[in-house]
């Protein structure tokens, strides 16, 4: 695939009345590079192309985007995973307002994260050393704490598209469960009552797009199921 056809979403609010797709021919020299490398090559041709990036190794969550229809991180997605018929279509994460080109306004996403009170709450005074936690208790946090807030999941979720103000979304709920599951957290009932309404959790329809796209292999749907169980148990 030496001259890759890339079609990329462009929109500069200062100069463009509407977004458009721009075509690039990218010479990858036959190598199976990452999508982020392709973006860098395109930026050398057109320095105005805007996208976020930082760690370039899949841990900072900056470069979530939609690549040939699927959300993922550009820095850990090799062309061989997404390119079909030598064509690559790059769009910003769906459902969030576009600031410029591939850069979206993450405000709504962060607001939902903040809403679940994403910090440990423990009303007992801390000991002089660490709070103890058994390896088994700690194991319950695996698959939860690793979230990098890239928003690939929430912006792939139809329920979040419809109700981004009211439905917490898979990323926020995964973090909510990360604290509900933590043996050191004592705010379980407040956390649950904060989620009791018909929208916050219950708008999840189990579509599982979140699971399909999570670049860290996490499973928000399972976490949401656990929260539902806790809410139901709490109600009875």
């Amino acid at each position: 695939m030496s001259n890759l056809q890339v079609s990329v979403y462009r929109y500069n609010p200062e100069t463009d009345s509407a977004p458009y797709m721009q075509e690039f021919q990218v010479d990858t020299k036959g190598r199976d590079v990452m999508v982020l490398d392709v973006l860098h090559i395109m930026k050398e041709q057109d320095s105005g192309l805007a996208f976020r990036r930082s760690c370039r190794e899949g841990v900072c969550g900056s470069d979530g985007m939609n690549m040939n229809g699927k959300n993922g991180l550009a820095c850990i997605t090799p062309l061989s995973d997404v390119v079909k018929n030598n064509k690559l279509v790059l769009r910003p994460l769906p459902g969030l307002p576009v600031i410029r080109d591939m850069v979206v306004d993450m405000g709504l996403f962060y607001k939902q994260y903040e809403r679940i009170q994403p910090y440990l709450q423990n009303d007992t005074p801390p000991p002089a050393i660490e709070r103890l936690q058994s390896p088994e208790e700690r194991d319950k946090l695996d698959g939860l704490y690793e979230c990098i807030l890239c928003a690939c999941c929430s912006t792939a979720c139809p329920s979040f598209w419809w109700n981004p103000e009211k439905f917490v979304g898979p990323a926020g709920l995964l973090q909510s469960y990360r604290f509900l599951a933590d043996s050191r957290d004592t705010a379980t009932s407040e956390r649950l009552s904060n989620l009791e309404d018909p929208f916050s959790v219950f708008r999840c329809r189990g579509i599982m797009n979140c699971v399909a796209v999570c670049p860290k292999g996490l499973n928000p749907t399972r976490a949401i199921g656990k929260i539902r169980e806790m809410l139901l148990a709490d109600a009875t």
């Binding site: 910090y119 801390p126 050191r184």
Partner: peptide, 8 residues
């Protein structure tokens, strides 16, 4: 105490 999920 802030919640860092250390291995145990």
């Amino acid at each position: 105490h802030m919640g860092l999920p250390f291995s145990r």
